[in-house]
Design a protein around this nucleic acid. Structure first.
Lengths: 266, 266
DNA sequence: CGACTAGTTGAGGCCAGTCAATGTTGGTGG
DNA sequence: CCACCAACATTGACTGGCCTCAACTAGTCG
């Protein structure tokens, strides 16, 4: 029994028909305006004409199979990447070789931003499942941003939101206890799936316990124990990587967050 | 004996003559091209003409006394701020009220970036000493960036470098032990002072043990103990907030970094 | 079917947190 | 100038949460 019920979970979405490896397909032209992730991606709020120009900018797609790498630390930075399908992790590594997951990225999210600063990527980006990527050459994107103020501002927002996100992770890593961290992690995933039209209470994790731990500054055993305890306490149901959230509010409270309802009345 | 020797440390630089509080001074017009921090600030690599335009953009300066706030979480975002003199800390706070230092910012650094995403600042910015700030209205900055590709790219770089910086802090918080964290912190300060023309081995901390701990995900007692231990081990000399680094290489090694010399030969 | 990876669970240890007492420093006003 | 106070810092004793090490289970793939 890999899943609890047969409601659509992200794992059951149509997958990229893994033709093979990295393949450019200019023929199958990108059409941002029919992309379901438009409202979460770079072209939010662009006019139809402008959207066309952004579409034209996407010069190829990349298909990655599970475990394949989009870019590595040190790879010259040339483009920004939008996740069209699937999901990835990014990992940073210390000089002494230690590696840590810096983020999990799903549909509609932009990655590769870290490369802008130095011209070389500062992390690895690895597919957690079969994944499809829109490639946006950065020079051209910058040029277009000079023409389209809305696009320019969107780009700035995406960059700044990444900073805000990182700050909240720093807060998590610096001042939360293990159970709080995992609760925040689950609530965060739940919210993001929800925003993409999936169930907020049932989903399948795409990463191992070790990867979760790495992201949260914990060891895999600790993560495993916490999953068990959350289940004992009736907060969630765990079946391997399949998660069902039984008490979203309690989980939010554990993570030090108000429930959306409570926040509204506040 | 507040300091070890009489060589110039940052604490002894000419301070802003604390006229009073927040004051706009259009009369004393900004001149980026005579600013010593130019090479570390936004206008790196701009032509003389372009520099003039950026100068014109700085519509006022703000003077802050120690402890005063530049902006708070939730303050509407209108401008980016460049540190002209002095230093600040930024702190993020969790919904439950916990607060954590997210960064220390000195001469030539740009802050306020986090506000771009949502239109409201996501952290507090508080002066650690008497401080002077260049205010750059963001709308105008965006407009100018559309005209000057170099400025545009610089802005992107500043944003992206902040992301990279945050990633390395996440690595620190997620996978380093206390002594490694403090070593990294000291080496980082040392490098930044050095880049600004100050001594890399002698400086005066602008923040309390508690603030250091907050930044590093440690308690103040732990920070204090570590300072003592580093001193016992002959790595540094500590005299309250005055720090003298005796063995930069050993400190770097503790932080898991190669010394610059070793890195060169590698 | 064996080898391998991922996950669970237990026992014990250690690093950093907590609590508490004491010392030091810098600023203020008599 | 010195006494006083508050904020900051140091140090010790103890605790506890998470890590480490290890054994075991479940599922997967050749």
């Amino acid at each position: 029994m890999p899943s609890f019920s047969r409601s659509a979970t992200p794992s059951e979405l149509p997958q990229a028909n893994s033709v093979n490896t990295v393949i450019s397909l200019r023929d199958i032209k990108t059409q941002c305006h029919i992309c379901g992730m438009r409202s979460l991606c770079l072209p939010v709020g662009l006019s139809s004409d402008d959207l066309q120009q952004v579409s034209a900018l996407v010069d190829c797609h990349i298909k990655l199979k599970k475990g394949e790498t989009l870019y590595r630390t040190g790879t010259p930075f040339t483009a920004l990447y939008a996740v069209r399908l699937g999901s990835l992790k990014t990992t940073v590594l210390a000089e002494d070789g230690r590696e840590q997951v810096a983020g999990y990225h799903m549909l509609g999210e932009l990655i590769g931003l870290d490369g802008i600063g130095s011209g070389h990527h500062g992390c690895h980006a690895i597919a957690l499942e079969d994944t499809e990527i829109c490639v946006m050459p950065f020079e051209q994107l910058e040029a277009l941003a000079r023409e389209l103020p809305t696009l320019q501002h969107n780009l700035h927002q995406v960059l700044a939101q990444e900073i805000v996100r990182d700050h909240s992770i720093m807060l998590l890593l610096g001042s939360m206890r293990a159970e709080e961290r995992l609760a925040v992690f689950l609530v965060n995933l739940s919210d993001r799936y929800c925003r993409r039209g999936y169930s907020s209470t049932e989903f399948v994790l795409r990463m191992t316990r070790e990867e979760i731990g790495s992201y949260l500054g914990l060891k895999l055993e600790t993560v495993s124990r916490l999953f068990s305890r959350f289940q004992e306490d009736g907060l969630i149901l765990v079946q391997g990587r399949a998660i069902k959230i039984l008490s979203p509010d309690a989980l939010r409270a554990l993570g030090g967050q108000q429930s959306p309802a409570a926040a509204e009345s506040a």
